[in-house]
Design a protein around this nucleic acid. Structure first.
Lengths: 147, 147
DNA sequence: ATAGTTGTAACAAACAGAGTTACAACAAAA
DNA sequence: TTTTGTTGTAACTCTGTTTGTTACAACTAT
């Protein structure tokens, strides 16, 4: 039943809000939380991670968040890594202690690791090819159409 | 910290054992469990899922498991799906209730879904291109080299 | 019958995700 | 300088999943 944490889609939602509403409203954690429909503290934790990754700027005290660089220079991979949806950058959890006395047990790791890396890379390459600008533009277009 | 369950790598380990040792030993859940170094019940549950997916055959009573079709016709995607590492076939967990009153909240899903599908497909395509025959051959080669 | 095995239920422990309250630190405006 | 609104963060609960464990009925071949 394992899935990549909703922190990832929430983070994308945050970016989309910031760019869509930046000229109208101050992008506080309360505003974002109400659009996403989660607790403001969840948003503040994510803002902290996105800020630490250098993707956004957050103004303490006065409040509000904004992008640290143009939306077409921020990819889904940047966000994915920033919010640490996967531990140690390893997508697959390898069983820890295969029996080293068994010929298969002591070789399975080196036989499998390179393939798991390839799978993970395929996924991350695809993420790197998608910028949040695309998603923001898409959303703005839908809003302009009256949706 | 989220990672794909070790059930997946354990399942690959199972296949590798079965094909490597099939002429020497009976592949019981106890044998497999000792190579993997987990409880035999874990193995039996996985064997049940792999059997239900039509990938292996398990002999009740007399004991032992074997492949249901040639190793080069079983892909990592087959195994991945069989052991249900991801819920509902959805890799990403979308936040459930974005605010429908917010223009971004009510459009984010349709803007993001197609991209998430592309990412998941990239990963699954890569999995489909890797057969367990590759991993088994690799492991056998390492054993033959004295590892 | 017996012995060895699978299938499965029932449970416990450890951990992670998600949500909540509370409050100190901070910055701008009154 | 006080007030107000906000961020940053600690501490906690709740819930669900993974993983591990014991126990035993169902089954098959010897």
């Amino acid at each position: 039943m394992m899935q990549i944490s909703s922190r990832f889609t929430i983070a994308v939602h945050i970016f989309t809000c910031i760019e869509t509403f930046k000229d109208q409203y101050k992008m506080t954690s309360d505003f974002l939380a109400s659009s996403i429909n989660v607790n403001p503290v969840i948003v503040r934790k994510l803002l902290g991670q996105l800020k630490e990754a250098g993707l956004i700027e957050v103004r303490r005290g006065s409040g509000g968040a904004s992008l640290a660089r143009p939306a077409d220079e921020i990819t889904l991979l940047d966000i994915y890594r920033a919010v640490e949806c996967v531990g140690h950058g390893e997508l697959f959890h390898f069983h820890e202690n295969p029996n080293q006395q068994c010929p298969v047990g002591r070789n399975i790791h080196s036989s499998l690791d390179s393939r798991l890396d390839k799978i993970q890379s395929a996924m991350e390459n695809e993420m790197q090819n998608i910028t949040i600008a695309e998603i923001i533009d898409d959303t703005k277009a839908k809003i302009a159409e009256g949706n």
